[in-house]
Simulated assay, not measured.
Amino acid sequence: MPYRSSLRAGSFDDRIVLVTGGGSGIGRCCAHELASLGATVVVLGRNAEKLQRVVGEIHDDGGRADSVVCDIRDEEQVRLAVVQTVERYGRIDLLVNNAGGQFPAPLEHINSKGWQTVLNTNLLGGFLVSRECYTQSMKPRKSGAIVNIIADMWQGMPGMGHSGAARAGMLNFTETAAAEWAGIRVNAVAPGWIASSGMDTYPEAAKPLIRSLPKHVPLGRIGNEAEVSAAIAFLLSEGASFINGTCLRVDGGAPNARRHYPLMPAEPAGGFDGFHRATTPDIFKS
């Protein structure tokens, strides 16, 4: 059973796409979708085993994929990873800045090391990869598109203030790059609560809260990886050729819910799940 994308077959024929954080979660799903649409996908991350597993999956499905091991927080590693990719494939047409991570903690319990680690992962790393793809490949060719994955950080992120600050910075970077890097489209996607492997990384104490999330979403459910990937693929596609410097929310309307207006109980709205290799996070299996 192949990936069932909402875009037409061959939408990314002959395109070279770099996907950071491509070894799991949304990055893995997006890599599969883009490969199914004809792209050669290079997944980048720190864990070689995870990257190779995704590359093997894509090859088994008849797609083209490769991997580069890199810590996006390290400027020289990023430069060399992009050099390696450009030398191997001649160029990078498209970039999905998906790598990220955080840990739950109130502001008063976050020390400077923890704060800086999350900012480096979610803000500095995205900037470094974008800059290198732009300077090494996109600027000389005057062509390319970048999608930065951020998060629902509007009205703050209580319990994850370090991530909220980094994601807000990434949105501003997106808007600035869209203006400075003329000819290169730079957009963002902000996933809300998504059922991906990342849900299983949170501590036991957070699980009751995670399981309660659907009741806070107007659509009555949380999203899945394919729904986020569909938004990313669209923004990279020729159909989005005049969309630049914007952010597409994929959150079921959760930021629009208000305490003074209780959500009406209803059957969860149907979703789109085209990812043939998707797995349900353990937290939602029981």
Rank of each mutant, 00 (worst) to 15 (best):
S241L: 10
A188M: 03
P106K: 10
N244K: 13
A231H: 03
S112P: 07
I232A: 09
F173A: 00
V55M: 05
Q52M: 11
A240G: 06
K215L: 13
S163L: 13
E75P: 07
T280A: 14
V86R: 05
F275G: 01
A48V: 12
G271R: 02
D66I: 06
V83W: 14
R28W: 07
L123V: 09
C247T: 10
S196R: 02
A179C: 14
W181A: 09
K50M: 04
V118S: 06
Q52H: 15
P158D: 08
R258Y: 10
A266N: 15
S112F: 12
G38R: 08
F284P: 09
W193G: 10
F242A: 12
I283R: 11
A151H: 06
N122P: 03
G161E: 11
L80M: 11
G274S: 07
V19R: 02
S67K: 03
L51N: 08
S241I: 10
G114E: 03
L107R: 12
G62E: 08
I26D: 00
D61Q: 10
K207M: 15
A182C: 08
E33V: 08
L236E: 02
G23A: 13
Q52V: 04
A188V: 00
P140C: 05
C247W: 10
T135Y: 04
V129N: 00
V78Y: 00
A81P: 04
M1A: 11
E49N: 11
Y202M: 05
E75R: 13
F242R: 12
G156M: 01
N148Y: 04
A188R: 07
E108D: 14
V186R: 00
L51P: 01
P268E: 09
T246D: 11
P140I: 10
E132G: 05
L7W: 10
G159Q: 08
E204F: 07
G125E: 03
E227R: 01
W181N: 07
S163E: 13
G144V: 09
G220S: 07
L7M: 12
S24Y: 10
G239C: 11
G22D: 03
P104K: 14
P158Y: 13
F234M: 09
V82L: 01
V217Q: 03
L248Q: 04
V147L: 12
A166Y: 05
G159D: 13
R88Y: 04
P268I: 13
H59L: 15
S6T: 11
D152Q: 14
G274H: 00
Q102H: 12
L18A: 07
I16C: 05
Q136I: 03
P214N: 11
F234Y: 15
D13L: 12
V42K: 00
V68M: 01
G239K: 10
I92G: 03
L235T: 00
L219H: 03
A269W: 11
P281M: 06
A168F: 13
A226I: 05
R88C: 02
I146R: 12
K50C: 00
A105G: 03
G164L: 02
N224K: 01
T117H: 05
